[in-house]
């Protein structure tokens, strides 16, 4: 009855027409080549089993590369899907899955953490990493430099240790997986 009084009832986007995603076929190493053309050196890791391109960024070029990818002219990688921590025993790595909505291309970005478990946060480029990086910090202890609010998210705040690390042991006789 009083919808007109609501301040947020007339959004700017309400008149626009829906945007339809147009899948594009891209050659292998498409994004790696793009970044190289921008003068950012990346390590190409080839495609994974599902055919998604994988690249590895260093801590230094992570943010410029992410910024460039987000503003890719043909397939802007605008939707960050997830951040997965991985424990590789020698070091820990964050795996970012990014998607471009319009061209529906996926890209996997890997950024290794240093020996102090520090890695750059991509929050400045993709604010969606907020909870995902908190989760990776919570479970792997990867400290994201530049994340505005790095706290535990799934585990209780008083928890000690980082449960998904391979060397994590919980001294509780009821937990059987330590002995497996």
């Amino acid at each position: 009855m009083n919808a007109e009084n609501n301040p947020s009832s007339s959004p700017a986007s309400s008149a626009s027409t829906p945007e339809v995603a147009v899948p594009q076929a891209v050659p292998a190493g498409f994004f790696g080549a793009y970044l190289a053309s921008k003068g950012i050196a990346v390590e190409n890791l080839g495609s994974d089993a599902t055919g998604m391109e994988q690249i590895r960024l260093t801590a230094e070029n992570a943010l410029p590369a992410a910024e460039a990818l987000k503003h890719h002219p043909d397939s802007p990688m605008d939707l960050l899907l997830s951040v997965a921590g991985v424990d590789l025993l020698t070091h820990r790595e964050s795996v970012y899955h990014v998607q471009s909505i319009l061209s529906s291309q996926f890209l996997i970005i890997k950024i290794a953490a240093n020996e102090k478990d520090e890695a750059p946060s991509l929050f400045a480029v993709w604010p969606a990493v907020d909870w995902h990086e908190r989760e990776a910090f919570d479970l792997y202890g990867i400290v994201y430099q530049g994340h505005p609010d790095l706290r535990r998210i799934l585990m209780p705040t008083y928890w000690e240790g980082f449960p998904l690390r391979k060397d994590y042991k919980q001294e509780d006789p009821r937990l059987v997986w330590n002995n497996r």
Partner: peptide
């Protein structure tokens, strides 16, 4: 008119699914 979740906000938080489609992305 309640709880408007625009495309920009969807991308900002990684929102997908029906919420994204209701914001105008097919």
């Amino acid at each position: 008119g309640q709880g408007i979740l625009t495309k920009e906000t969807c991308l900002q938080f990684g929102v997908t699914g029906p919420a994204l489609r209701a914001a105008g992305y097919a």
